[in-house]
Simulated scan of single mutants.
Amino acid sequence: MRGIGLAVLAATAAGAQEACREDVATLKWPGGTARFAVEIADDAGERAQGLMNRESLPRAAGMLFVYDRPGPVAFWMKNTLIPLDMLFIAADGRVGRVHENAIPGDLTPIPGPADTLMVLEINGGLARRLGIGEGAILRHPRLDPALAQWPCPQG
């Protein structure tokens, strides 16, 4: 766990104030902060492909699925080779559900809350090891600053 924490956590005052970037998803919760290098999946084709057929995912990486508006979404693990944690995120950046260790290849739908705007997929088991749960807050430039609980700096 210590190695994972060092690879992912960036719990410094300077890190909390740095500019938001499209390729970085930052989360905070009571007791922690984590940054993930992310690929963005923001159209139907990219979202359908997701992390399929990949044999690995770097520890501090993930994929951020972004939708045009909040709504119900469901994921499955068809052709996905690695276990994943799925963080379902509302328009204000709040994590509404964490699905841990989705099973590779499983076709069972994994639904999120009805107000899901984004889904962050990270390595399976990592959310629990870091302490990321419901109520954690995402900061990312794709969140509307007027709605975001932790908006990106404006300027």
Rank of each mutant, 00 (worst) to 15 (best):
residue 70 P to D: 05
residue 63 M to S: 08
residue 53 N to M: 13
residue 25 A to E: 03
residue 42 D to T: 04
residue 90 A to G: 12
residue 38 V to D: 01
residue 24 V to L: 10
residue 25 A to T: 04
residue 54 R to Y: 10
residue 23 D to K: 05
residue 70 P to T: 07
residue 25 A to F: 03
residue 7 A to K: 10
residue 13 A to Y: 00
residue 27 L to D: 00
residue 36 F to G: 02
residue 36 F to A: 02
residue 51 L to V: 04
residue 38 V to M: 03
residue 8 V to Q: 01
residue 105 G to Y: 10
residue 61 A to D: 14
residue 79 N to W: 09
residue 77 M to H: 09
residue 61 A to K: 05
residue 87 L to M: 15
residue 104 P to K: 05
residue 44 A to L: 08
residue 42 D to H: 07
residue 87 L to H: 13
residue 66 V to E: 11
residue 99 H to V: 12
residue 30 P to M: 04
residue 103 I to E: 14
residue 79 N to M: 09
residue 99 H to Y: 13
residue 58 P to K: 04
residue 81 L to H: 08
residue 83 P to E: 06
residue 49 Q to C: 01
residue 98 V to R: 09
residue 44 A to H: 02
residue 72 P to E: 11
residue 7 A to Y: 03
residue 56 S to M: 05
residue 64 L to P: 09
residue 66 V to I: 15
residue 48 A to W: 06
residue 83 P to V: 12
residue 20 C to F: 03
residue 77 M to V: 12
residue 68 D to F: 03
residue 20 C to D: 02
residue 90 A to F: 11
residue 29 W to E: 00
residue 86 M to Y: 15
residue 76 W to E: 04
residue 30 P to L: 07
residue 93 G to L: 13
residue 62 G to Y: 06
residue 25 A to L: 04
residue 90 A to R: 12
residue 73 V to N: 13
residue 80 T to Y: 06
residue 58 P to L: 06
residue 19 A to K: 05
residue 14 A to M: 02
residue 20 C to Y: 01
residue 59 R to P: 10
residue 97 R to D: 11
residue 71 G to F: 10
residue 16 A to C: 00
residue 100 E to V: 12
residue 52 M to W: 05
residue 59 R to E: 13
residue 106 D to V: 05
residue 61 A to P: 02
residue 74 A to F: 10
residue 80 T to I: 10
residue 106 D to Y: 10
residue 90 A to L: 10
residue 21 R to W: 00
residue 24 V to G: 02
residue 81 L to M: 10
residue 101 N to H: 06
residue 48 A to R: 15
residue 63 M to L: 12
residue 51 L to Q: 03
residue 99 H to F: 13
residue 92 D to L: 11
residue 102 A to L: 09
residue 78 K to L: 14
residue 38 V to E: 02
residue 87 L to D: 13
residue 34 A to S: 07
residue 59 R to W: 11
residue 60 A to R: 14
residue 65 F to E: 13
residue 47 R to L: 06
residue 101 N to Y: 04
residue 42 D to L: 04
residue 85 D to R: 09
residue 26 T to F: 01
residue 5 G to R: 14
residue 89 I to G: 06
residue 96 G to A: 13
residue 70 P to Q: 08
residue 22 E to P: 04
residue 82 I to F: 06
residue 90 A to M: 11
residue 71 G to N: 08
residue 98 V to L: 11
residue 9 L to W: 03
residue 71 G to T: 08
residue 10 A to P: 00
residue 70 P to Y: 04
residue 29 W to L: 01
residue 58 P to C: 06
